Amino acid sequence: MDNWYEGTQGLDPTGSIGVFDSGVGGLTVLRALQAQLPRESFLYLADTARLPYGTRSRSEILQYVREILTWMQHRGIKMAVMACNTSSALALEQVRHEFSFPILGLIEPAAQAAVTIGKRIGIIATPATVKSGTYVRVLQECSPHVAIAQVACPEFVPLIESNCLSGERVRRSVRQALAPLIEFGLDTLVYGCTHYPHLRHIIADYLPSSVHHLDPATTVAHSTAHALKALSLQTVAHQGHVHFYVSGAPEQFARLASQWLGYYPRTQHLPLSVLSQSYSVEITLPTVPAVVAS
C-alpha cells in the first residue's frame, strides 16, 4: 500500500469525506462518490471566490489547498478528495506529507484506467494542469508506449460557471479545442478538469463515435471506496448527507448546481478571511553560530 496511507490511525469512521473544487466542476466527483458510497457523508467546498484555478500559479494553488484542507481538518473529516485536476497536478504530492488523513487526487486513478482502454490518449485540461505535465508523466509511468496529446482549454471553466452550456460561443470553443486531438487521432478522451463533463453533450458531437470518454470522477470514486475499506474507515451509518460551503456567492452556486444535483442545495458562505486564517505558515530561522574573533 502506498506510503501516503501511513499515519492515519485514530481517524473517526463516522467523519465526513471532504471534497473541494473551485466551483461546480467538483459536483461531477461528488455525484460519483455518492453513487459509489451512499452511506458516507460529505463536506463540499466550492472555492468560487478564487476561480478559475486553472490559470493560477503552483504557489497560489498550494496555498489555497493548504487553507482548505486545514479548515476541513478542523471540521473533523476522515479523508479528502481533490475534485480538481489542477489541485491534483500542482499540490497533491506536497500536501500528502503535511496532513494526517488520506488525500486522494484524480490523475493517477484516471491514468491507470485510460491505459487499459486506449493507446492514443487525448487530454483536455486547464492551462495549469497541461503546463505541469502531470498527466503525461503518470500516463507514461502506467504505460511507456502510450501516445499522448493534451490541449489547454482556458475558456471552458468560465463558460460553465456562467451557465453558458449551449450556443455558438461554446461550440466554437469546443471545436477549436478538439481540432488538434482529432488530427492526433485519439481513441480515448480524458476529461482533465472536473468542469468539462458538463460539456460532454457538445464535446461528443465533434468526436468520432468510436472515441472512449473517460471521466476521472468515476475512477476516483472507486479509489475512495478502496481506501475506506483498506483503512477500516467505512461508516456504519445507513444514509449519508452533504454539507455545502461556498467562498463566493452561495445563491449563485446553488442555482447553477441545482441543474446537476436535481435539487436546490442548501449552501453556507465561507468567507476567504476564515479560510486564510485556517492555515498559517510558521517560518523558523536557523540559528547562526556566533563567530568568535581570534
Rank of each mutant, 00 (worst) to 15 (best):
Y44A: 04
I77N: 11
V136T: 15
Y64W: 10
T134E: 09
C84I: 00
V130R: 08
R39M: 11
A111Y: 02
L139V: 03
G76S: 06
N85C: 05
I77F: 03
Q63V: 11
F42P: 13
T129I: 10
W71V: 02
T70C: 08
T116D: 15
L92N: 11
I77D: 13
H74P: 00
E40R: 08
V130M: 01
K78Y: 03
E40Y: 10
F42I: 02
S88T: 06
I77T: 12
Q94H: 12
R75V: 00
Y53H: 08
A46K: 13
E60L: 08
V115S: 09
T126Y: 07
V151T: 15
G76R: 03
R137D: 10
K119W: 05
T134C: 11
P38W: 07
R66P: 06
W71R: 09
Q94K: 13
D47W: 10
P52Q: 06
Q94D: 11
P38H: 07
E98R: 03
A147V: 02
A49C: 14
L104P: 06
R120D: 14
Q150S: 15
L106Y: 01
A80T: 01
H74K: 09
L106F: 00
V138Y: 08
G122L: 03
A125K: 10
H145L: 14
R39V: 01
A91N: 04
V136Y: 15
H74I: 00
R137E: 14
R96Q: 12
A110T: 02
P109G: 13
H145F: 06
Q150P: 08
L90P: 08
L62N: 13
W71N: 02
P127F: 07
T70N: 00
D47M: 14
A125D: 13
S41M: 12
V130P: 12
R58G: 10
T70M: 10
R96T: 04
I103A: 02
L43T: 11
Q140D: 05
T86F: 02
A114Q: 13
L37F: 08
M79N: 02
Q150H: 14
S59R: 08
G118L: 05
I121G: 03
E67I: 11
L51R: 15
G122P: 06
W71S: 02
